[in-house]
Design a protein around this nucleic acid. Sequence first.
DNA 1: GTTCTTTTGACTAATGTTGACTAATATTAT
DNA 2: ATAATATTAGTCAACATTAGTCAAAAGAAC
Lengths: 155, 155
Amino acid sequence: MENQNISDIIEAYLKQILAESQEVEIRRSEIANQFNVVPSQINYVIKTRFTIQDGYVVRSKRGGGGYIRIEKVKLLDNLDFIDSLVTAVGDRITRHDGLAVVRSLFEAGTINRREANIMLAAIDKTAINTGNRDLDEQLRARILISVLDHLRYES
Amino acid sequence: MENQNISDIIEAYLKQILAESQEVEIRRSEIANQFNVVPSQINYVIKTRFTIQDGYVVRSKRGGGGYIRIEKVKLLDNLDFIDSLVTAVGDRITRHDGLAVVRSLFEAGTINRREANIMLAAIDKTAINTGNRDLDEQLRARILISVLDHLRYES
DNA sequence: GTTCTTTTGACTAATGTTGACTAATATTAT
DNA sequence: ATAATATTAGTCAACATTAGTCAAAAGAAC
């Protein structure tokens, strides 16, 4: 308690608001000012302490009237399963293995047939085909993980 | 909520009228005056928030008695609708416009919210982010078209 | 002292605002 | 009719206002 760093303090401040509200919307520079840190530290706090694994979704907008909004989301009970798939995907994945991941989701009942087909369309070779196999595998991985992260919560 | 930018406010004003009417017709300078902005800001609002991907058609006339008319578009049947979106996507598309395409599909009832979220996850900046903006826009377009094509013969 | 986390700031990107200039259309004068 | 003028909207680039990224420096933990 007595040895908190400033990131912890900012985290606590935001979570205190979130304890009584579904979401919190801030102006980055205001919070930075309030806690006397540089603005990018707010990004650091958010990136390390308000992840989807923690049950938070963050949206933001730049420009005049810009904001950062942190929203608590209701995590589903498939988290371990999603985690294992995210690990399996890693930072690159072949089409064959990507297909297996989607099939797993379908067979586990996490997604239905239509949703599976949308995912397959997004990673098939019509869509992902830059001419660079390595890049394709990385893109496929990022797309899958992005979708998997969205399947973690109710929306 | 307390610090919205003026463009959002003007957008909300116009959309509120459109919620109860098929179209809205304005005199640019009047609205600009009403919200205390320069006239060209009205063009900015229209260009960024009332695109065809958003489901609006805008017509205007200059000179005496000039006007800007914003009309909600009636959606075609599914196949024509998907065709028009494929055309709108073209061979590259920005994130902003990609989002509008998915929103159109959702609002047309072609996809439900879960499916929309899967599509958005597949094209968001977590997923598509090669460091080359041009390539990102092309990838986003291919993914969207791949999914649109699947939606075509599934529905 | 090595490694992990936090802090900082320079640089980048996205979005919004403004105004000078241009283009189209309507009205009035000849 | 035609030309001149008035009255609208459109375009574009400069500037303003936000947030994001990244890597180096500093500090903490081991």
